[in-house]
């Protein structure tokens, strides 16, 4: 239905910024949005009841004015609550902020007043049959938009506050693979990174399960590397083998990158926002580097502080 729909199935929405970087947002599904709406509904009801009580007391002296105020506030509560919240809290109503949702423009920009007005006025239509129309529309659109979102060009996304990940704990007891036991194959950065993350989160699994998962990779890695050492170790302690592979090749990289850094320091896109992020020149890897087994990764760098 949407012309520029994602190639992904799932909750990911991709937005390309003027800096040539693709940002991804996690879309909010119907369930969490219903919960946020329910929370908003509770808040609105509570506020209305509170105001009604105050006005009831006031109506002893000023019956007309308090009735008028009640009706006017009722109007604001029905039609303007979400607009006011979304404009003042940058796309979040109270319920949305409890469930960490935010309304943004589909290109990633913050929501504007008119867009908020549009999407919330159309609530009147989406809300027909207990939000049945809105739900139907969400199920039919790749970005899970109800009709109001479609017209206003907005999406509801989930906010993640991810912390900087810890370095995997790899003690320097782990020896790199001896040079003469492996062939010339060099695992890719991506593969090393997968191993890195797997090892970093290995405590989430039982040891047996961890080894079972690692076994698949370690066995094919051992084949590719043409590993001449003790194959029984690969079979019995696959995680250890993966760790050794990681240490071996990340150390190599360390050396090459040291040289790299001397030649051309990290130069972020200071000169031009459109500067391509990837010069693509640093992929060269020196296979011939001699081993420096003693240098290995220090133990945990805590990035979270």
């Amino acid at each position: 239905m949407c012309s520029d729909s994602n190639d992904h199935v799932g909750l990911e929405m991709r937005v390309e910024t003027p800096e040539n970087v693709v940002l991804t947002y996690t879309l909010a599904g119907p369930a969490i949005r219903v919960m946020a709406y329910g929370m908003d509904f509770l808040v609105r009801t509570a506020v209305m009841v509170g105001i009604a009580i105050v006005l009831q007391i006031m109506s002893i002296a000023l019956p007309g004015l308090s009735t008028g105020l009640l009706l006017a506030i009722w109007f604001v509560n029905t039609w303007a609550y979400f607009v006011i919240c979304e404009c003042f809290f940058n796309g979040r109503s109270i319920g949305k902020s409890i469930f960490r949702l935010r309304v943004i423009h589909h290109q990633g920009a913050p929501i504007s007043f008119l867009a908020s007005m549009l999407r919330n006025t159309l609530r009147a239509v989406d809300g027909i049959v207990l939000y049945g129309i809105g739900l139907l529309s969400m199920l039919c659109t790749p970005r899970l938009q109800r009709l109001g979102d479609l017209v206003a060009g907005t999406v509801v996304v989930q906010e993640r506050h991810v912390r900087l990940p810890r370095e995997p704990v790899i003690v320097n007891k782990i020896d790199p693979l001896p040079r003469d036991e492996i062939g010339s194959y060099v695992p890719s950065d991506g593969l090393l990174s997968v191993i890195d993350q797997f090892l970093g989160r290995r405590h989430l699994l039982t040891i047996g399960r961890g080894h079972a998962l690692a076994w698949i990779l370690s066995r094919s890695l051992a084949d590719r590397l043409n590993y001449q050492g003790d194959r029984t170790q690969v079979e019995r302690y696959p995680m250890a083998f993966l760790a050794r592979v990681f240490v071996t090749f990340s150390n190599r990289e360390d050396r090459s990158s040291n040289r790299d850094r001397d030649e051309r320091p990290v130069r972020p896109a200071r000169q031009s926002p459109r500067a391509q992020a990837e010069p693509g020149t640093r992929r060269k890897r020196s296979n011939q580097t001699t081993q420096q087994p003693s240098v290995s990764i220090e133990v945990p760098l805590d990035f979270e502080q």
């Binding site: 800096e19 970087v21 991804t24 990940p165």
Partner: peptide, 25 residues
């Protein structure tokens, strides 16, 4: 702009989904 660059670097080198989502956020 520097962070945009970092994000692109990390993503293109597949240096970890967690790191990517941290910077993406």
């Amino acid at each position: 702009r520097e962070l945009s660059n970092d994000l692109a670097t990390i993503r293109s080198r597949a240096w970890g989904q967690q790191l990517v989502s941290y910077l993406n956020d």
